[in-house]
Design a protein around this nucleic acid. Structure first.
Lengths: 360, 360
DNA sequence: CTGTTAGCGCCTTCAG
DNA sequence: CTGAAGGCGCTAACAG
């Protein structure tokens, strides 16, 4: 474990020069720099991050705050963020707030953050007043994905718009009896995204002149199992809907499973549209409104790095080009697969293409 | 941002006493300690982790090395590890080695580890010689989950045994034509677990006196999509198997999907058993050999903490009770759901219970 | 049981 | 463009 002075000695320069040369800051004579790099390489020198942090006040570590890690959206986002940050020599401290129940979570504490991270990316975590005050006090740059953090950049999709795309598709197929699975319990803490999707659903139904039967709107936690359990009763009713908008693909899969077990055929008896384009959605032939989570993760990392690096000499990424007023709305797109079909007996103006594209 | 000397001043003691009192080491007079804690609390004091690390040489950060994060096993394990470590004041640095292709991965470098982590937990990552030399040089304690790291503690399941349990179940149902999906390409780097499961399958088939048709052994990457794609041909054959052992539940789901699209009914025409007990397996009624990933994550964290803390005054967790010779084999268990049924016309000695337990 | 003090390894003015 | 030197905030002997 060689130190900076070993390198300085080997290169015949001072430690200050080594520090400058290795970090690529200020102007160092090209020849000197080369000698330093050579010496560092020879000695397998790696600067001590803790010493560098203590002296500089920066850690090159970003905290990722997530309410869960075991769901597709979160794991995918974390993975994308990690890869982007690493390109710039930044590291990821994982802060998983999951508690015993899905309805509560652990708090973000000063121990987790203070002097430990240079910035934060939150994944669909609505920060509490105390937590907001904390990051304020620590003057930590924050970028939010999904659920906004007031006063900080936001990367998200148009949740209401996504639900609307789903309704448009079903209405276009002639469906009029459309239900919704994925309203969340009132006490759930991360409720903005579910709320947005439900609102979009309601608005779109109204715009299409469709009746919204409140008994067809099912509340459940955000899992396939919860969705399956809560929607069982729906398929025992005489007046069951002919189509379902699911708030997420995982929910949609739960609905598909329970519908099958209730002897409903999908899509002949029931059409289903999800939101996300989950890993398994392709193979399960689920029609869905796709969101690009990797793009969101990358955009969040780029934004944070831009904030962190722009006041320094180091080159950082640009802000995402389409960001306006600190908000980037990543577009969503309907992907038609086999879980939706025209409503029975409905007059459909433009019959949709129901065949599946060749396997990719 | 108060420092240790602010606290010392406020409590009327020296910085050394503050340090001792706050870390709970050595013997500090109870009254003094109380005064220190009080002062620290009043000042919202949080010790600078970088300064502490620089002085002590320990970071209280553990690196988790994973080849992916977006698959169930890995995300679940990371989450469990994080929770356990946090109970002891340790933090998680996430090292996701995923590269562009699933067949390759990025290397573990000195920059990622040196002076940055106190230890490593690897998730099914076979370390390369250079990487082994690196952790050797850094004298980093390592605990492996799944794929072993020579010379370090290992937490795993009996992969061959898991496949064997699957075969036993199918053979018990009278199946004789049993296929396998989930052999891996020879160039895949993380091949020990897949290999173990395939070996167990082969051995169990032989023990049951069953013929192993090599055309019923399908190679694919470890995803539902890959499995679906590669096993399509299987269901076009005249001599298709009547049962499939899938190397993982995600693979099993891919097979279920493609079987359904080939007009095979599950389980009437085809029985399927997976391995894992993936989140969606319950809702999809997939019979599987369950492995407890959370227990594995916790055991790995406990083991590493034990190694790290036993030479200090700090209390750490015990080693997992059933660990022998540095190896803990977590048991697996068959869960019967609806994707398996007796082979048609087969004489079944003890007819299995095919009904699903009430929803839990 | 408590205080003093010398580093830990690097960054960052400030001179030159 | 380069060197000297003072911290960054804490821990860990070592005395007392």
């Amino acid at each position: 474990m060689s130190t900076i002075s070993d390198v300085a000695r080997a290169a015949g320069v001072s430690v200050a020069t080594v520090s400058r040369a290795l970090r690529g800051v200020s102007t160092v004579n090209a020849a000197t720099r080369a000698r330093v790099l050579r010496a560092a390489d020879d000695l397998d020198y790696v600067a001590s991050p803790t010493a560098a942090s203590l002296a500089s006040g920066r850690t090159r570590v970003i905290g990722i705050v997530t309410p869960f890690l075991t769901r597709w959206f979160f794991a995918t986002a974390v993975s994308a963020i990690e890869k982007t940050l690493r390109e710039y020599g930044y590291h990821v401290l994982l802060i998983d707030l999951e508690a015993d129940s899905h309805l509560e979570r652990r708090a973000l504490t000063s121990q987790m953050l203070s002097k430990r991270v240079d910035g934060l990316i939150t994944l669909n975590v609505p920060l509490r007043p105390g937590e907001l005050a904390l990051i304020e006090k620590l003057t930590l740059p924050v970028v939010a994905i999904g659920n906004p953090v007031p006063g900080h950049p936001l990367i998200h999709i148009d949740d209401a718009g996504a639900a609307r795309q789903a309704v448009d598709h079903l209405a276009g197929l002639g469906h009029t009896k459309i239900g919704y699975v994925g309203a969340v319990p009132a006490n759930a803490e991360h409720r903005l995204v579910p709320w947005g999707r439900l609102t979009g659903f309601r608005d779109a139904m109204r715009e299409h002149g469709l009746v919204l039967n409140s008994e067809w709107v099912i509340t459940c936690d955000w899992t396939a199992q919860g969705a399956a359990k809560q929607s069982t009763a729906l398929f025992l009713r005489d007046d069951a809907p002919t189509a379902i908008v699911a708030a997420s693909d995982e929910i949609a899969i739960g609905v598909m499973a329970i519908a099958a077990q209730s002897d409903y055929r999908v899509p002949q008896d029931l059409s289903i549209v999800g939101v996300d384009n989950y890993v398994l959605s392709d193979v399960l032939k689920l029609t869905t409104v796709r969101q690009d989570v990797i793009a969101q993760g990358r955009a969040a990392a780029d934004t944070l790095l831009h904030i962190l690096l722009s006041p320094t000499e180091e080159p950082g990424p640009d802000l995402p080009a389409d960001m306006v007023d600190n908000v980037l709305t990543v577009p969503t797109e309907l992907i038609t697969r086999r879980t939706t079909s025209p409503a029975r007996g409905a007059f459909v103006e433009a019959p949709p293409l129901l065949t599946t594209p060749a396997d990719r």
